[in-house]
Design a protein around this nucleic acid. Structure first.
Lengths: 155, 155
DNA sequence: TTAGGATCGACAACGTGGTTGTCCAAACCG
DNA sequence: CGGTTTGGACAACCACGTTGTCGATCCTAA
């Protein structure tokens, strides 16, 4: 047995480092293209809102956080000009949260940048190893989408 | 070209899901073995303290956060009984933060559990694919260890 | 030896993201 | 119609991060 396996604690560190590398590069590109104030959590929230908009409660459910937490995040997104609240014509209790043109632009840019980032990995590792990495991870992680309560989850 | 590549935004999601899966399983095992109150951030902090102890400022540097933030985390760790502050005999300004026996136990257990978790992945994917995943990630992430200011970084 | 500067750790104030609990208005349903 | 559920706001609180300040201690160089 020539090479010893790396210690088990290295695996989570590498996964996190990969995640963080991508997200940091995403936000560096976003900042360079007119979106310096978006934080990672905002991107996930806007993803949860989607191009058709959603109510506060629905956003909370999609993110796996309370509606109060979702409401605060929407407040900050609104202050940054990425979303707006409009009355829901079909439910007087509900306010529909919709992306502004600026919000839509950031979402479109983010998708582009993620493609470019994956292409970088393919250039470094080859298409086969990137596909293998993705397929390995799909095997070991539960199928369900993951909640995005990262700050609260971690600390 | 038979199969289309997955969209670029899936890669960070998979990496995060892998990380979160491992950390969640770690803390589930830790909770079952007498450490229900440790949070992920505490584990990283204890790792930074190490078996020989460290000063508050040194912990902050190792974690990539301010000494004030390190001090608060140490406060909570001390309240949980995982660390203690003792006077540094060689510097009257400094307090040495040391792991208690309980803290050392959690660190030892965590190392064991991470080994078992990696073995689970090997059982599901095969040793070669796990090694390939680790090696791919080492290629694309910067060599430097990553800061652990996760909540602040994300939000 | 002493003056100046750097470092240690504490305290305070604040921003952001999360949580519960409470409340009212509107919607739903038997 | 009346009871229950739901949507969203408000308040209080906790965890984790930040900057700024400060006194005490250490180090170094005049």
């Amino acid at each position: 047995m020539p090479d010893a396996d790396p210690p088990g604690w290295e695996l989570p560190l590498l996964l996190f480092a990969g995640f963080r590398t991508l997200i940091d590069q995403l936000h560096a590109s976003l900042a360079a293209r007119g979106h310096p104030d978006v934080r990672p959590v905002h991107g996930f929230a806007m993803q949860a809102i989607g191009v058709h908009g959603a109510s506060i409660s629905e956003i909370g459910r999609r993110l796996g956080v309370s509606k109060q937490a979702a409401g605060k995040t929407v407040d900050r997104l609104a202050a940054l000009g990425y979303v707006e609240r409009v009355d829901d014509p079909r439910d007087a209790r509900s306010k529909l949260v919709r992306l502004t043109p600026r919000g839509l632009d950031s979402l479109r840019l983010a998708a582009e940048i993620f493609e470019a980032l994956r292409a970088d990995w393919v250039a470094q590792l080859g298409a086969e190893r990137v596909r293998s990495l993705e397929s390995s991870l799909r095997t070991v992680v539960p199928a369900a989408g993951y909640p995005v309560d990262v700050p609260g989850w971690f600390g």
